[in-house]
Simulated scan of single mutants.
Amino acid sequence: MLSKLAAVLLAFAVPCAAAQDYPHKPVRLIVPFPPGGSVDLVARLVGKSLQDALKQPFVVDNKPGASGNVGAAYVAKAPPDGYTLLVGSAGVFAANQFLYANPPFDPLQAFAPIMRIVDQPNILVVGHQSPVHSVNELIALAKARAGKLSFGSASVGSAQHFSTEIFMQQAGVELLHVPYKGGAPALVDLMGGQIDMLFDTSPTALPYARSGKLRALAITSRQRSPLLPDVPTMKEAGLPDFEVVTWTGIAAPAGTPQAVIDRLNAAIKTALRGELRRQLEETSLIPVGDSPEAFREFMRKDADSYARLVKAARITPQ
């Protein structure tokens, strides 16, 4: 009897001891998109903060493909020990499951949520060579050239894609979708004139809008950004019901010890009270820093919202 009791106690003690020692080796932060996008930026800033706080390397590893599903599925199958983490977008954690006929994982079952790190608006941008200087002008041109103006996105079902679907519904226009494998290549093609418009994530669009390489027409948040004070919100630009804010979060494989989850959450929260907050806000990101429990509930509610949006947009699962 005593030997059985000892075995039970040992089973509980081993994860606790491992958590107290965590991390004792490098940690990989899997970003399921190419370098250069907003999720990659958040991962690198958070990774540096965690490295400073926990005294082990936090190495960003980009594994793009299938709208983020390749990298996310990799993390879902990783050992649940806290040494392989996923830094992903709303698409990976909420939307993709409704965009694929046979999704490779159920986000709420496959991952142990750690934190919703930031919220972020999108910025509606056109190339500097575009004849369009306002949202109203863009709508007029789109109606005159129905189905011919093109918009880019990081992938089917990405925040850029859904922002544009909402725009088309509310503005009463039809646009041609050109999906990419990440936001960065879409941005490059917009600057090169290969596509006509893009609802790009604010951190990546901001420097180009400021430098004049792109023209910012509007921002999708409720309020103007202090970093682009002259750029109106979509509501101010003539679409009163338009507001889209996406997000980036961090999670571990399901089954990761709760003590490890809590340690990571606490370390990021501490960083968000200092230099990390300033770095994120400088790129127009809005720090959140919620609890693992709050992040799980947010994922569930956001998934419900995406399910309705996919149905309304008549998107056929791939």
Rank of each mutant, 00 (worst) to 15 (best):
A6V: 12
F12Y: 15
A13P: 06
A13W: 12
A13F: 15
C16R: 11
A19D: 00
P26F: 12
R28E: 11
G37K: 02
S38A: 10
V39A: 13
L41M: 08
K48L: 07
G71N: 10
S89C: 06
S89K: 08
A95I: 07
Y100Q: 12
A101L: 14
N102S: 15
N102Y: 12
N102H: 11
P103Y: 15
P104I: 11
S130Q: 01
I139K: 06
K143P: 01
A144I: 05
S150L: 06
S150H: 13
F151T: 04
S153Y: 02
A154L: 11
F162P: 00
I166S: 00
A186N: 03
L187E: 02
D189Q: 07
D189R: 11
I195P: 00
P203H: 07
G212Y: 13
L214F: 11
R215C: 07
A216K: 12
T220C: 05
R224M: 10
L228H: 02
T233G: 02
K235W: 12
G249W: 01
A252N: 01
T256C: 09
P257I: 08
I261C: 03
L264N: 04
L264H: 05
I268H: 00
T270G: 14
T283N: 15
V288Y: 04
E293I: 04
R296D: 01
E297D: 14
R300F: 04
D302K: 15
Y306V: 07
I315A: 08
P317D: 08
